[in-house]
């Protein structure tokens, strides 16, 4: 089934090439800024959003977490499509309401599948976030998950594919995907509802380490162009 999407990316090449590279996704709008998207607000199943939108031609536009929050607040399911790799920044995007995060270095087939998953309401997270999820579960920060979900999380944290997990756990891939879907929704809710202080505590970080990353302010007061991504990840 074809899904509809809007794309927000400051790179003209990416904006123009996405429809050509992903014919199964119907791009109903492509924008260089979130502000332009919010003006037009076309109906779409998915918003594909780059994190880094400021450049010389548009120095004061909303980007990063502010952009995520604004697009989520406009009612879109957001999939961050970025080169960003710092795991706390990516976790902050999930906390800001993004439904998924896909690396621009990922193979095209994987990107399309992830876009479809996010459009369908599933949470897509990169490997670095999965290892964070494992820490949170192991330290009993997220407790309302079953034994099977723990097993699936342990396997995903080790990089196993659904095919490999199916062999090990004697469960069908669709069943495993179901466990994973419930688990990621659970973790997404946890990240959105938990204070940075509690997450710092859970991850063993120093107080205040996450404040520069985490979406603290309401969407309406986000400062356009906040340079949060220049901060280094806490050690």
């Amino acid at each position: 089934m074809t899904i509809s999407a809007v794309a927000v990316d400051d790179s003209t090449v990416i904006r123009e090439s996405l429809p050509l590279l992903m014919p199964e996704i119907r791009f109903v709008g492509r924008y260089a800024t979130v502000e332009r998207l919010l003006v037009e607000r076309p109906t779409a199943d998915l918003a594909v959003l780059d994190l880094h939108l400021v450049n010389e031609r548009q120095p004061s536009v909303r980007q990063g977490l502010a952009a995520v929050r604004a697009v989520v607040a406009a009612g879109y399911r957001v999939c961050v499509y970025s080169q960003e790799e710092r795991r706390f920044v990516l976790a902050a995007c999930i906390a800001a309401g993004a439904g998924g995060i896909v690396a621009k270095s990922a193979p095209l087939a994987e990107v399309q599948e992830s876009f479809r998953d996010v459009a369908a309401g599933r949470v897509v997270v990169p490997q670095s976030i999965i290892s964070l999820m494992e820490i949170l579960v192991r330290r009993n920060c997220i407790t309302i998950i079953g034994e099977r979900q723990r097993q699936v999380l342990a396997a995903r944290a080790r990089g196993l594919t659904y095919a490999e997990m199916s062999t090990k756990l004697f469960l069908s891939e669709s069943t495993l995907r179901g466990y994973w879907r419930d688990l990621t929704l659970n973790v997404s809710s946890y990240l959105q509802q938990t204070t940075p202080h509690d997450i710092e505590h859970a991850l063993g970080l120093k107080p205040g380490d996450l404040l520069d990353f985490w979406p603290m302010q309401p969407a309406s007061t986000d400062r356009p162009g906040a340079e949060w991504w220049k901060l280094t990840e806490p050690s």
Binding site: P126, I130, S131, R138, A157, G159
Partner: peptide, 9 residues
């Protein structure tokens, strides 16, 4: 190589 290392545990 695209290595993700999970060594925090």
């Amino acid at each position: 190589l695209s290595i993700e290392h999970a060594l925090d545990l």
